[in-house]
Design a protein around this nucleic acid. Structure first.
Lengths: 341, 341
DNA sequence: TGTGTTCTCGTAAACGTTTACGGAAAAACG
DNA sequence: CGTTTTTCCGTAAACGTTTACGAGAACACA
């Protein structure tokens, strides 16, 4: 069935070395024989065995994407990642690279899965998502000298790896700006715990904007909870029970916002009328929720493409003439004004 | 950095053959030397190079999942697949198998990507999603003798491969049942075109139930459109313009239902009050939409696990003592009654 | 002691590539 | 025509495994 380079060589009565060189576009092969080799390859339906190639070249031509679902009872996981993955995969495919997806069990320690990928050399590089402020996966990869890139920043590992992130800080800032312009002064910020890095960034922007507007922050209006609907419900209920209620809430996660809106509904508080609600990362749920939630939307699919490019630029095998480059980018979000604020 | 089997052999002053046999649990190796090999492996942080293994064994220990986004302008892709992927990946990981994800460009011909995977032997088997009634991917894989399984049935390929599907027929039937019990007689069925197989299955169930209830179907109430929001909008508007309007609509896709509801809203028709709306495959969007949409929900994550098992059972290398088995399963959906009917 | 069996291990080939090296033939040059 | 350069190709090693084969040593048995 599958023909090898030996089959081609036998068929053409030349050596396998020549066949290989012809196929790989090496210069030291006669134009005529190259032609014959290519024709024979087509005729015998030859395509190179990736295992053989990987072994010889020490590169698998595949990139691993590590996706760790947040702990929780999510029925459907994070819609966030499909478009990102689409972009990532599309750009990798341009370079004939495969994408391997490694998902941990929700909440399970992912380090072990990562080690396996690295140590058995199943991938040439890794893309990490869900970066935490202190991320032992980053520490591990750095120490092991294994190439990687991250979706999201972290404090681990220094500036030694490419990373692409959403500008949560600016989004938090803008969200406050918009709410203040609409007359709000008591603005709550609700974000996930779990040491997820974006929660800190969001809060930075939130605080900066408050200060700029001369509003002194009320610590009671900042809260964090489990990054799912139940967590949002819980923490929102808590915040709304404080004696001096907020008139606006910024949620740093869509699932938490949904849970929060449920809590609000039970208290008879209507987003968009009695309270303003803004969500920092938009998902389709925000759009179809009633009232439709004003949210900040990232360009996920282009981000996937971009991170692939950044990763490749950092790999010696793919970097251009200037050699490998480490790039870090932070992308803005687009405000999608809807009905909840 | 990475130690090979040769390093172990040198370190222990024995041959690589013995090392390999010791690591692989072969019987013909002294218990004592095996112990020493295992200790050395741990000490030198050895783990087998997958490329070397693949080359020798002719198996890559990775499974490819082919996901082809439907054409359309979906911002976020299909939430359907994340939980399925989670289950699939989890079970494969139990067998130390990797998951490779191959996504076509939306609407792009996927055959080429598939051929590449097969011909370069990057995976040992393939899992297909979005099966069509006549599916050339299935024809190709069958002819090539390459192992695969499908999420969704097809008319192609006969009974030669494992497949797992949702019982769209029964869901269509039950949906009609429920609506008839609530007094509806004019029930529309809106489904995707594109030759997607589940659209046919759904319609079979729909028709069967109508006949059972002695309702003669109105062909004008059956319509298909593009499988996205715009398609649902369009075809729903058409159906509602017929002189004898339906009192209920069953949508065979969540995005189409959302678009349909938009059309209804513009006509001042309220789901749950003026018309009954049922969705055949539930997604989170159905739950958060307002009114929350009554929908049939599959157990996606368990289905992912199950399909992995079925695929493995069909592979000689993994099948139990009885040898490889071809299994086909159709899973029921659970009705989630909400507010739209 | 001789013969047969079992246990354990080393040797070497094989999987399908790529590539460093060297050599023969052809071309270029004087 | 002799020498040098260029062009082209074959040889063989290497990547890291697994495994068929065989052989030496130990053991059992008569």
């Amino acid at each position: 069935m599958a023909s090898s380079i030996h089959d081609l060589a036998r068929h053409l009565n030349i050596s396998i070395g020549t066949v290989s060189r012809a196929l790989n576009g090496r210069a030291d092969v006669n134009a005529d024989t190259r032609q014959r080799v290519l024709e024979a390859a087509k005729k015998l339906n030859y395509s190179p065995n990736q295992s053989g190639r990987s072994l010889r070249q020490g590169a698998t031509r595949s990139i691993a994407f590590m996706l760790q679902p947040h702990p929780g009872d999510q029925q459907y996981g994070e819609p966030f990642f499909i478009p990102f993955l689409t972009g990532l995969q599309a750009r990798l495919a341009d370079y004939d690279l495969d994408l391997m997806v490694v998902m941990g069990e929700p909440g399970q320690y992912q380090q072990e899965r990562l080690r396996r990928v690295v140590e058995t050399r199943r991938a040439d590089a890794v893309v990490l998502a869900n970066t935490r402020r202190e991320d032992d996966r980053i520490d591990y990869l750095s120490k092991a000298g294994f190439p990687f890139a991250t979706l999201g920043r972290s404090q681990s590992g220094g500036d030694t790896y490419p990373s692409l992130d959403i500008d949560f800080e600016r989004a938090g800032d803008e969200a406050v700006d918009r709410l203040v312009a609409r007359g709000h002064r008591r603005i709550a910020a609700i974000r996930p715990s779990h040491d997820l890095n974006f929660g800190y960034l969001f809060l930075d922007g939130y605080r900066k904007a408050l200060k700029r507007h001369g509003i002194e922050g009320d610590p009671g209006l900042i809260a964090d909870g489990f990054i799912n609907e139940a967590g949002g419900y819980q923490v929102t209920a808590d915040v709304m029970l404080s004696k001096d209620r907020p008139t606006a809430i910024i949620f740093n996660n869509d699932a938490m916002a949904l849970g929060g809106c449920k809590a609000l509904a039970e208290m008879g508080i209507r987003p968009g009328q009695d309270i303003a609600v803004t969500v920092i990362v938009d998902t389709p749920l925000c759009r179809y929720f009633s009232p439709a939630l004003t949210a900040f939307r990232p360009a996920l699919e282009p981000m996937g493409r971009r991170l692939a490019e950044m990763l490749l630029a950092s790999l010696p095998a793919f970097a251009g003439p200037e050699g490998p480059r480490i790039i870090r980018e932070v992308w803005p979000l687009e405000l999608i004004a809807r009905d909840s604020d």
